[in-house]
Design a protein around this nucleic acid. Structure first.
Lengths: 247, 247
DNA sequence: ATGCAATAGTTGTATATACAACTATTGCTA
DNA sequence: TAGCAATAGTTGTATATACAACTATTGCAT
């Protein structure tokens, strides 16, 4: 990304990225490289609008999000400035992690769920090729009563597979943020909390740990809680788990 | 704020607040009261648009900001849900502090500054009635060279008065965020960092600690660095500090 | 030097609109 | 039962526009 002085800045190959993201990256690169030092007055919304040939709201969003991440500081009537922070690396790390959480939080399935279950297993992540299929989940009918699971209608379970390094980084500092971003959601209230390892999931589904479940192919339910699940494993095999699932 | 079922929600007396802020408060009140439990599916952008009679972008902003604060979780295609967090009180605290920082960060003067000086003194805050006059600051011509202050042109100093409890809360966990939000800004790079108590400021300005400076009434400079400051104190008296300020 | 008015520039709030991308459900067909 | 298509609903991105609120500077009159 290069800037031809006083003319418009091309978006280049980043056509997949949102425009405001490109602008954010452009600004961060300027800060990271030291071109824009701390307390530097960054281009105004109107200037960015002209430079990148976008609407003001798009330019504004870039500045806004960087402000919320603590990288910029804005002041009505004055302008936007590079914030004060201790070390560049530390703050840019925060930005990256913040972006990642944001991304995951948005892309993750916020479905109606009953059980909050998080499976952490680095090997599983590699096995499932998490880059292409980042948030594998299992859906099931499950409910707990008096400590024992029972069936319910139109309820299913989400088991999120989480990269271990991310979990480690955040469980100490800001666990709720991370959990709220990646944790499955439920329309029911506060039923259960459970953390499941890969083994637990496989045991639940009665399949081998060597063939972790990949994807729920089809999910159906009747008024009586009868359900059928077809689950694909690595090579493409199907596993029927029967109509009645009682763990 | 009351909701007449299926009809529009009135904004009531909160005419001073921004609409999206009112919607945020409405949502937070629902969560805080337990009406909307964790994982509850909150009204969609379109529903809020109708209920509050605002544009979609306004409703969207409310949901967006609460999402960024970790209170809601959104998912494209599914909806917006109350996030998972350990205790309600803890998360709502975060929201309030986050709002406060945001507010201070925006309203604070992000001017071209030379010296970063933070004055922390609870008594001063009370004296100055910080509620009505939250970010008192002094402007001066000041620059350091070889450890000694000298004069410069078109440079002045901002001394932000910060409530002590806020500083204590944040200096341990996220100092840079707080500092970037409340710290004065400079167009120059990384000159000095100084933390001044009330006594220091008064000593600098050569006034009594019983009469802390309230407001810079007028500020001028010439090409030679000559400056004049008129400073108001509590009863409205004026203090001329002369043309040449050398500390 | 002082006080005031006027001006331009910047960010804040808000509306209206359009289309893209994704999800959950329904219905049809075999 | 299984596969597929269609549909409606929801959030994501983007533009264009308007006005409000605040800041810094300039200019004028005294």
């Amino acid at each position: 990304m290069s800037i031809t002085s006083k003319s418009k800045i091309e978006f280049g190959n980043n056509e997949k990225l949102a425009k405001y993201t490109v602008i954010k990256q452009y600004i961060c690169q300027k800060i990271e490289s030291g071109t824009w030092p701390q307390h530097y007055k960054v281009p105004s919304e109107n200037e960015l609008t002209q430079q990148f040939d976008v609407s003001r709201m798009t330019a504004r969003r870039a500045l806004q999000e960087l402000t919320e991440q603590g990288i910029l500081v804005r002041s009505q009537g004055s302008g936007t400035f590079v914030a004060t922070f201790k070390s560049q690396s530390s703050l840019l790390e925060i930005r990256n992690i913040s972006d990642e959480i944001q991304e995951r939080g948005h892309k993750h399935h916020a479905k109606q769920l009953m059980l909050k279950s998080i499976a952490v297993n680095e090997e599983v992540s590699i096995l499932l090729n998490l880059k292409n299929n980042e948030h594998v989940y299992l859906s099931q009918i499950l409910h707990f009563e008096n400590g024992f699971p029972i069936q319910l209608e139109q309820r299913y379970v989400n088991a999120a597979l989480v990269p271990e390094y991310l979990l480690q980084d955040f469980t100490e500092t800001t666990p709720h943020e991370y959990l709220s971003a990646v944790a499955p959601l439920t329309e029911a209230t506060h039923e259960i909390e459970a953390i499941l390892a890969q083994e637990d999931i496989c045991q639940l589904l009665n399949i081998s740990t060597a063939q972790p479940c990949l994807q729920v192919k089809r999910r159906t339910w009747s008024s009586k809680g009868v359900v059928s699940l077809a689950i694909l494993t690595a090579p493409g095999n199907k596993y029927r788990l029967g109509n009645h699932l009682v763990f």
